[in-house]
């Protein structure tokens, strides 16, 4: 458990705005092609919405929850696929390697490219590349290894490029990786990280939620890990409902008592 202390610090960076906010407002589910509003003078189509051809209606393009923010009408997606963006932290699995690069499955439409120059060994003292002779040797990866990487280049046409140089990035040993819908990731993290903090405190597990919908977790015993996985799947299933954090807290406390986990 040499990297235990290091893992705990990963918590800090899990801060992201919760897209599912406005808990109290009624959540209306809309389907593609449904009219969101006829009032095009006061509202502008935002995320997941477009103007129709005549320009007199705003329609939804995905299945999701209707949300009005200022004068924007958004649709928060309930299903979808992951599109890589620069700066995203992702969990990948090495699929193939050659003398120039590694090819990683990152759950996107293209596989990620990891060049050898970006696979540096981390310096355990400062958790970054550099400052020691050892850190200049590239880290050797094998097919099937799980890595936490960061996207450094991504566009519509080319395969995204990823790097292992940076804080908390690198090869992952041990733990469990599970996969959820990448559109539900903001819900797992919660507003200002409230949900993920609650999960960590109650189950004593280390969690890393990557933007591509993969979640790495490691606990002290299998009971806690199983409870956590169940809780994560429950959050994914009920992501469109209100008051989720409180309900999940109750669920986990109940289950701990019922199962007799210490």
């Amino acid at each position: 458990m040499e990297n235990n202390e290091e893992l705990e610090q990963e918590e800090e960076e899990q801060e992201q705005n919760d897209e599912f906010e406005d808990e109290e407002t009624l959540r209306e589910i809309v389907a593609p092609g449904e009219v969101l509003t006829d009032d095009t003078e006061n509202y502008i189509p935002g995320r997941g919405a477009i103007l129709n051809k005549k320009g007199d209606k705003i329609i939804s393009v995905i299945i999701g929850l209707k949300q009005i923010k200022k004068n924007y009408i958004n649709v928060i997606p309930l299903r979808g696929f992951y599109t890589p963006h620069i700066g995203d932290k992702i969990i990948g699995i090495v699929l193939d390697k050659n003398p120039v690069k590694y090819v990683c499955d990152i759950n996107a439409k293209y596989s990620g490219i990891l060049k050898i120059k970006n696979t540096v060994k981390r310096n355990p003292k400062i958790r970054m590349r550099g400052n020691s002779r050892e850190s200049e040797i590239p880290e050797k990866l094998f097919i099937g290894d799980a890595i936490i990487g960061k996207v450094i280049a991504a566009d519509r046409l080319n395969s995204p490029e990823i790097t292992l140089a940076g804080k908390y990035l690198g090869k992952k040993m041990g733990g469990i990786i599970i996969q959820i819908d990448s559109q539900k990731v903001p819900r797992i993290i919660g507003r200002n990280g409230s949900m993920i903090k609650m999960l960590k405190n109650l189950t004593n597990c280390n969690i890393f939620v990557a933007q591509n919908g993969r979640i790495w977790l490691k606990g002290f015993d299998i009971e806690h890990e199983r409870l956590l996985i169940e809780a994560i799947y429950k959050i994914e299933n009920e992501a469109h409902t209100t008051g989720l954090t409180d309900r999940m807290e109750g669920f986990i406390k109940n289950e701990i008592e019922r199962r007799g986990i210490k």
């Binding site: 593609p32 092609g33 997941g48 393009v61 995905i62 299945i63 979808g80």
Partner: peptide, 11 residues
């Protein structure tokens, strides 16, 4: 297609 979350103009 709609269930997969693929953007569509309508059904």
């Amino acid at each position: 297609l709609a269930d997969a979350g693929i953007p569509m103009r309508s059904l």
